[in-house]
Amino acid sequence: MKFELRELYWEGDIIEGELILSKKPISFLGDVDTNGFVVAEDSDIKGEKISGRIFAFPFGRGSTVGTYIMLQLAKKNLAPIALINKKTESIIATGAVISNIPLFDSPNPDLFDIKPGIYKATIKKLGEHVILNLKR
């Protein structure tokens, strides 16, 4: 499956790894623990690790303190290797930049139409475009 992404913050040209997809909005303050595991009761990926993975979720919610939680994960090398949103808002954007995590949004077609779970993924720059390739 191929998706075009909007690049918001990225200085590299290729990202390879596992992608974990959730259809629920995330607050880094409360929904994720300090070891990088999803702890939100109502999450469709509860108990899964986001560290070292490309983390896809529709959008951020909740307190701006969440930005510092992202930084804390990054300092412990437990941050995701990239973030993909349906629509990014300021809190996630701020957290991504200060933690130096590549950030993308507006996947076309809609990435969030597929099932939550873990996929193999590659994000690549092709000229002006950024393409996400996804495999089960």
Binding site: E89, A93, V97
Partner: peptide, 13 residues
């Protein structure tokens, strides 16, 4: 630098 990168990213959003 980091401040400018942040504002550019917010601008893109």
């Amino acid at each position: 630098d980091v401040c400018m990168r942040l504002l550019i990213t917010i601008g893109k959003v």
